[in-house]
Simulated assay, not measured.
Amino acid sequence: MESNSTKIAKIATKMAICNRNEEDELKRFYNEQGIKVTAANMGGNINSSISKILESALVAAKRNGLIREEHLHEGAVIGATRDAIIQISTRANGLNVGGKIGIARGGEHISVCIFLSIGLLHLDEVVIGIGHRSLPV
């Protein structure tokens, strides 16, 4: 049987890899199941974009009602986002990236997934990172 943390991590990943039309459909679908989701586009040089990635994840989570505006909730989103950044940073170090941040919250579980395409000459590399935290409901 799948744990709730695994389920929420998979949903965050779906949000990070979907296109805009799918994003709206997934929001409706998961909302009916009591799971809140959101996504935000991102891009630029990874080294100079880290603070923007953190800010984008936090703003998206607040705007879409995944978290409350309080220290514990904000810290959970920042921590999960930092974990995801750490996982992608060595592959993307110094390079331009473009992609999406997907966030899902179900009960006490919140996951942040970052899916990126890394521009390297005429080749495109892809990388994915994910972080998870538990929050009181």
Rank of each mutant, 00 (worst) to 15 (best):
26 L>T: 08
28 R>H: 13
28 R>M: 14
28 R>I: 15
28 R>W: 10
28 R>G: 15
30 Y>A: 03
31 N>H: 08
32 E>K: 14
33 Q>W: 04
33 Q>H: 01
35 I>G: 04
35 I>D: 01
36 K>Y: 12
36 K>F: 11
37 V>E: 09
38 T>F: 10
38 T>P: 11
38 T>K: 07
40 A>C: 06
41 N>R: 11
42 M>C: 10
43 G>K: 00
43 G>T: 05
43 G>H: 03
46 I>T: 04
46 I>H: 06
47 N>E: 06
47 N>L: 03
48 S>K: 11
48 S>Y: 06
49 S>R: 02
50 I>T: 04
50 I>W: 01
50 I>H: 03
50 I>Y: 01
53 I>K: 05
53 I>P: 03
53 I>G: 00
54 L>V: 00
55 E>I: 00
55 E>G: 01
56 S>A: 14
57 A>C: 09
58 L>K: 14
58 L>C: 03
58 L>Q: 13
59 V>Y: 07
60 A>N: 13
61 A>T: 10
62 K>E: 06
63 R>Y: 08
63 R>E: 15
63 R>W: 02
65 G>C: 11
65 G>W: 10
66 L>R: 07
66 L>I: 08
67 I>A: 12
67 I>Q: 11
68 R>Y: 10
70 E>V: 12
71 H>S: 14
71 H>G: 06
72 L>M: 12
72 L>I: 12
75 G>M: 07
76 A>F: 05
76 A>R: 05
78 I>K: 14
78 I>D: 02
79 G>R: 12
79 G>L: 08
79 G>Y: 08
81 T>V: 02
81 T>S: 07
